[in-house]
Design a protein around this nucleic acid. Sequence first.
DNA 1: ATGCCCCTTCTTG
DNA 2: CAAGAAGGGGCAT
Length: 140
Amino acid sequence: MYSFQSPFGVIDYDWHEDVCDTLILQQSDMAYAEHDDAVSAWLSAYFSGKTLSLPTLAPAKTSFQTKLRHGLCAIPHGEVKTYGELAKMLNTAPRALGQALGANPLPILIPCHRVIAANHLGGFHYGKDWKKALLNFERE
DNA sequence: ATGCCCCTTCTTG
DNA sequence: CAAGAAGGGGCAT
């Protein structure tokens, strides 16, 4: 487990065999050692306003989540979509999306923070502070 | 502001 | 395998 110091807080991540399988948005200042690898490079670029190609990510547990992951990657940087729109795009129900997004172990890398509810911000597994901060940052 | 419904997963029987 | 509950929502009262 390594950490990355982002402008909004500490991000912890872990991986095995060059495959990133966990990413946690910390809410405290607890941090592990920083490390120079594909993930920290990606995060560093992201918070500099650039977009790199994603590091190798652990495969989703279900085909549904894999489908969802593709849909999410289709959302351009700086834009947001609602659960409803995405649900329609993927031929599924809004509720199902919430389920899958919450189960996503790789927030930010998979831009699940760009998905909001129809009439409000929506929730966020790691705390709405992150969601707000990230969206505000991307809107620049 | 309630109530009921869509769909995928996880937990139990 | 069958049934029930829950989850970052949506739409109609």
